[in-house]
């Protein structure tokens, strides 16, 4: 066990994957000598060399497209895109090829690659550096989309993503990279993809979230316990596939559901979770499902960003509303 933050836990997973599997290569911008813009690949270039930790030209579509070809020919590439806002040029490769080759070739070819993308706001970054457009990827057939919220999950889910025979988009909450430390096993372990987890027990309301919003949801839950409200927090962890069974079980258990995301509201993950709850748990509900989300706006810059990214106040207000309904 070593106490690691989320960035270090990801580094540890990459280190193990590079050490244990010669097929694994890292490909991205500034990930080599510099160790990545968030230093997540720190030290790996020095340990494994430039043929395994590859600094690529500034071309996201080219990086993902080349990794796609590599994966088909037996390499296990792990791509780093610097920010989710810079992933859009690569989206064509993901939607048109990465997510399709298995179907297009009836399993004859497959592309087991991992695309790591830092996402989300709350750190007052420049425009394009705070995007939370994960729903676009969850909407894309043929890929898996996962988001860890703890160092332990980050390492275990990344190792599971690397071992997965299908392409995985692995979103990393920028705001949590260095926010908390946790004891993380030194050896390899897998946290299965596609499975949600209950991070706080409660009986009155189920709060569903993922990534950086898990921490905000827990803060709200703690605060609300002082008001006598027992709030359960579910970390969805996987956006595609969504763990519907866990969502439905929780909604039936508490009868109240609040979904928290920092993404735009329309056609987002919160809408999807709300739809699942009404389809399969409607008659258990004691209140309408609430969505606490970012707005259908560009993420505001630093001075007003806190009005966009949900936090304690807006989450608590939503929980109080479903309690009063």
């Amino acid at each position: 066990m070593t106490e690691l933050n989320l960035a270090q836990a990801i580094n540890s997973a990459l280190d193990l994957a590079l050490a244990n599997d010669q097929r694994v290569v890292l490909l991205g911008e500034d990930i080599g000598v510099t160790g990545g813009v968030f230093r997540v690949t720190d030290g790996l270039y020095q340990r494994y060399g430039g043929d395994r930790v590859i600094d690529a030209p500034v071309a996201e579509s080219g990086i993902v497209g080349a990794a796609f070809g590599m994966a088909i020919a037996g390499i296990r590439p792990i791509v780093e895109i610097q920010f989710l806002g810079f992933a859009y040029p690569a989206y064509d490769q993901i939607v048109s090829h990465v997510g399709r080759i298995r179907n297009r070739s009836n399993h004859r070819f497959s592309a087991p690659l991992v695309i790591r993308i830092p996402y989300g706001g709350g750190i007052g970054a420049a425009e394009h550096h705070s995007e939370s457009s994960e729903a676009i990827f969850a909407h894309t057939p043929g890929i898996k989309v996962v988001v860890p919220s703890t160092p332990y999950d980050a390492k275990g889910m990344l190792l599971a993503a690397i071992a997965d025979p299908d392409p995985v988009v692995f979103l990393e909450p920028i705001r949590l990279y260095r926010a908390v430390k946790q004891d993380v096993p030194d050896d390899e372990y897998l946290v299965p993809l596609g499975v949600a987890t209950t991070v706080r027990e409660g009986t009155d309301v189920s709060l569903f979230s993922y990534g950086s919003m898990v921490r905000e949801s827990r803060r709200a839950a703690e605060a609300l316990s002082g008001e006598g409200v027992s709030v359960e927090v579910i970390d969805l962890r996987s956006l595609a596939p969504l763990d519907e069974e866990a969502i439905v079980a929780a909604a039936r258990r508490t009868g109240r559901a609040v979904v928290v995301t920092e993404s735009p509201r329309t056609a987002g993950m919160a809408s999807e979770v709300a739809a699942v709850v009404q389809e399969r748990a409607l008659y258990s509900l004691l209140a309408p499902v609430e969505r606490v989300t970012g707005w259908d706006t560009v993420v505001p810059l630093k001075r007003t960003e806190h009005h966009h990214v949900p936090g304690l106040k807006r989450i608590s207000a939503a929980v109080r509303r479903v309690m009063e309904a």
């Binding site: 097929r23 290569v25 043929d51 579509s61 080219g62 497209g65 080349a66 990794a67 796609f68 070809g69 590599m70 994966a71 088909i72 020919a73 037996g74 390499i75 064509d92 490769q93 048109s96 090829h97």
Partner: peptide, 17 residues
């Protein structure tokens, strides 16, 4: 046009192996 980079990756993977 999107497939030319796939050929780059395929050949690259062969060299790496």
């Amino acid at each position: 046009g999107a497939h030319m980079i796939h050929a780059v990756g395929l050949g690259w993977a062969e060299s790496l192996q």
